[in-house]
Amino acid sequence: MSCKERSGGMEADVIEMETVLVARGIRISAFCESAGIARTTWDRWKNGKTLPNMRTWMAVRDAYRAALKTKGAAA
């Protein structure tokens, strides 16, 4: 089974998150740093080449929520 077949739409989630972050003026490289992942890791997820483990994905989710709250409060 390929990574794409196991992802269950992970690429779509990453693309959606990236779209929202960029629309709010948040640089993806800065977001990745705050989430504790490399930008290249984000790109591999987005392209369906690898998948995050649950712990990493939860950290990304938490960083995403925090980024939206922080940016929303500043706007």
Rank of each mutant, 00 (worst) to 15 (best):
M1E: 04
M1I: 04
S2H: 09
S2C: 07
C3W: 01
C3H: 03
C3A: 05
C3Q: 03
C3I: 12
K4C: 03
K4L: 06
K4P: 00
E5M: 11
E5A: 14
E5H: 10
R6K: 12
R6F: 05
G9W: 02
G9Y: 04
G9P: 02
G9E: 01
M10W: 02
M10K: 02
E11L: 09
A12F: 09
D13V: 13
V14D: 00
V14W: 01
V14R: 01
V14T: 05
E16P: 00
M17I: 14
M17R: 14
M17N: 10
E18G: 15
E18Q: 15
E18F: 09
E18W: 08
T19C: 05
T19P: 00
T19M: 03
V20R: 14
V20I: 15
L21M: 10
L21R: 11
L21V: 08
A23M: 10
R24W: 14
G25W: 15
I26E: 13
I26D: 04
I26R: 15
I26F: 15
R27E: 13
R27N: 13
R27Y: 11
R27D: 14
R27C: 09
I28G: 08
I28Y: 11
I28N: 07
S29N: 07
S29D: 11
S29Y: 05
A30L: 14
F31K: 05
F31L: 07
F31I: 08
C32L: 03
C32F: 02
C32M: 03
C32R: 02
E33D: 12
S34Q: 09
A35V: 04
A35G: 10
A35P: 04
G36A: 05
G36Y: 07
G36I: 08
G36H: 08
I37R: 03
I37V: 15
I37Q: 04
I37H: 03
I37E: 02
A38C: 07
A38S: 09
R39L: 09
T40Q: 12
T40P: 01
T41E: 04
D43R: 11
D43L: 15
D43M: 13
D43E: 13
R44P: 01
R44F: 10
R44T: 12
W45A: 09
W45D: 02
W45H: 12
W45G: 05
K46A: 09
K46R: 15
K46G: 07
K46P: 02
K46Q: 15
N47R: 15
N47F: 07
G48W: 02
G48T: 00
G48C: 05
K49A: 13
K49T: 11
K49S: 11
L51C: 03
L51P: 01
P52F: 00
P52I: 00
N53K: 13
N53L: 06
M54G: 01
T56L: 07
W57L: 14
M58P: 00
M58T: 07
A59V: 06
A59E: 09
V60N: 00
R61A: 08
R61P: 00
A63I: 05
Y64Q: 03
Y64G: 06
Y64D: 03
R65Q: 14
R65Y: 12
A66P: 00
A67R: 07
A67F: 10
A67E: 06
A67I: 08
L68T: 01
L68G: 01
K69F: 12
K69R: 14
T70A: 12
T70S: 11
T70Q: 10
T70I: 07
K71M: 10
K71G: 03
G72K: 07
A73P: 00
A74I: 06
A75L: 11
